[in-house]
Amino acid sequence: MSKKLLKIFSIMLVFMMILLTFSGCSNKNSSNSEDSSEKVVNLFTWANYVPDDVVKQFEKETGIKVNYSNFSTNEEMLAKLQAVKGSQYDVIICADYIIQVMGKQKEVLIQPINKANVPNYKNIDSSYLNQYYDKDNKYSIPYTLGGQMIVYNPDKVKKDINGIKDLWDPSLKDSAVLLDDPRSVIGMALTKLGYSINETDPAKLNKAKAELKDLKPNVKVFDADTPHNSLISGDTSIGIMWGSQASAALKENPKLKIVYPEEGMQFEEDNFVIPVKAPHKANAEKFINYLLDGKINNDITNNIEYISVNTAAKKYMSKEYLNNKAVYVPQEEFRKAKHLEDVGDVTKQYDLIWSEFKQQ
């Protein structure tokens, strides 16, 4: 081979190596970016929180497959999201206070949602926007609202029930079901004392601890998932539960009564968020937009029986739904609403109070 040909061959070889290097970098970069061609959306939320019929309808209309994974608690969700560093999932539906927690972290695990890609955002009732956990709804879009209420059997409970404080009445000994949830139950004691359910003053929390000691003889069951079952079976006669659970109880026993606590109901606003490294962000926004359609949102609400935050859904609501006190809560109750907030390091004291209360 001549020197001239060898030189040309060497130049070509170097050129090919450069091309391969850039190609490898390009492929590497593309692996970290959204694969817009993949017709998939990875959903992470509570079990049955998006009805199967709605999921199947979305898949049929868009050709996008929904991979549904579920968690039991907001804290479990956060731990898993931290473990994958904000990747793997495309849409997460979680509670308000945990969004506040995520927003305070050094490494933000969620990304801004492009509202231009979610035109049905306009259907959200403005009353539920710009809340404490995400002032401008930069990272979150409301999905549903849950409210805690008192449900009791008037055949067994002869006392007038008006609020949280009434659960301490001695006549209710060994008859109450409470949510197996520290913030909910400790919040009840704080409410009885006239304090915030997000109290951080150690002295006030110790007073709440003393109140719980007095409450314990009335508690028969702790149940976060199915507290209504003990009311239906007759094992308990009064309890605190979420609206969807209260509705299930009334369907089985129409004699049961619902009371909105006069001190104000505890509400939890669940929201859509998109993880910072979501592999299919465009599909995530399509999914969110689909669930915010008025008719679809009404179908969801009728199925899961949480409070609708969607104004476009109201025209589809049945009289049965509008008359259901468990899931259609009057607007005036929202003015007294109590929302959980992050209490930071004081969480340790809450945990200690809860542990001692359960062991009494």
Rank of each mutant, 00 (worst) to 15 (best):
K4R: 10
L5G: 13
K7M: 05
I8K: 02
F9N: 03
I11M: 01
I11L: 10
L13F: 08
V14Q: 13
I18K: 04
F22C: 03
S36V: 14
F44K: 07
D52Q: 12
V54M: 04
E61L: 08
G63D: 09
S69Q: 03
N70G: 05
S72P: 03
N74E: 15
M77Y: 04
M77C: 01
L78R: 10
A79C: 00
A83R: 09
G86D: 03
S87N: 15
Q88M: 14
C94K: 06
I99H: 00
V101I: 15
K106G: 08
D125Y: 02
Y128W: 12
K135D: 10
D136C: 05
K138P: 01
Y139P: 02
P142V: 10
G147I: 12
M149C: 08
Y152V: 07
D155L: 14
K158M: 14
G163W: 13
K173H: 10
A176G: 11
V177Y: 04
L179T: 14
I186T: 00
M188C: 02
M188K: 02
T191Y: 00
T191W: 00
S196K: 11
N198H: 03
D201R: 02
P202F: 06
K207M: 15
A210K: 05
D214V: 15
V219D: 03
A224N: 12
T226N: 12
S230V: 09
D235T: 14
S237I: 12
S237N: 15
M241E: 10
W242R: 08
A246V: 10
L250I: 04
K251Y: 07
L256Y: 11
I258T: 15
V259R: 07
E263K: 10
Q266D: 12
N271Q: 04
V273D: 04
V273T: 12
A282M: 06
L292P: 00
N298Q: 13
N298P: 05
D299K: 13
Y306W: 07
I307A: 01
V309A: 11
N310R: 04
K314Q: 03
Y316F: 11
Y316E: 14
Y316K: 03
M317P: 00
E320D: 13
E332G: 02
R335N: 11
L340E: 06
Q349L: 15
D351C: 00
W354N: 06
F357W: 02
